[in-house]
């Protein structure tokens, strides 16, 4: 029993697991130079009686280009090129320079930092907690800034080796979104 408690203690309190730590995960992720994946995103919003589901494809080109092409329910193209976020929807294009919006940047950095294995960028705004092993890991990001914490309670990223499987956002208002990702091909 004591050993069990000790084990649990170890698992839950240590920011990094001894055998498989954040540094190693980041190292693995950084090796991933890009690729294409299908995604299904399920948003649970208190305002709506049922979750809304969107599907599409996303691709990532290291180090700083991310493209998310939503196909249903409405076609939409979201691109992130360095700090320029563009959303094209129904013939209209909206461009936001993220350096103008620190909160949005922190939000985007959670996914971009994970994709690029940029530990420094992640730790700027989040505390990192890793569990599992290289084949099946769970990385939890806890916002350290009050302003970000007011928007998102935590972000849970799961994956296998250098491949991300899912990203879940838990928002401060109780709404959540879960995006599951399935690689089409890997380079």
């Amino acid at each position: 029993m004591k050993r069990l408690i000790a084990c649990l203690f170890l698992v839950f309190t240590l920011p990094a697991y001894a055998a498989f730590d954040v540094a190693q995960l980041m190292n693995d992720l950084a090796k991933h130079k890009g690729g294409k994946a299908k995604f299904v995103e399920k948003r649970t919003i208190s305002l709506l009686d049922k979750p809304v589901i969107s599907t599409g494809e996303m691709s990532y080109t290291a180090p700083d280009r991310l493209e998310k092409r939503t196909l249903t329910p409405k076609p939409e193209l979201l691109t992130l090129d360095k700090d320029l976020l563009s959303i094209e929807r129904e013939g209209q294009k909206l461009s936001i320079n993220l350096s103008n919006q620190p909160e949005a940047l922190a939000f985007i950095d959670s996914i971009r930092g994970t994709l690029t294995g940029n530990r420094a960028a992640l730790e700027k705004n989040y505390g990192l907690y890793l569990s599992g092993n290289s084949d099946k890991w769970v990385l939890t990001l806890m916002p350290s800034e009050q302003k970000i914490a007011a928007l998102v309670v935590r972000i849970i990223v799961t994956g296998s080796k250098s491949q991300i499987r899912s990203i879940e956002y838990l928002q401060a208002d109780g709404d959540r979104s879960l995006m599951t990702i399935e690689a089409i091909e890997t380079k």
Binding site: E41, R43, L47, V52, T70, P73, K74, L78, D175
Partner: peptide, 20 residues
């Protein structure tokens, strides 16, 4: 319907409180 669809998009985060 369009607004609900927008909620499925990252852009929807901003408008969520305004929907009602």
């Amino acid at each position: 319907g369009d607004s609900v669809d927008l909620l499925a998009s990252p852009a929807g985060m901003m408008i969520k409180p305004l929907i009602p």
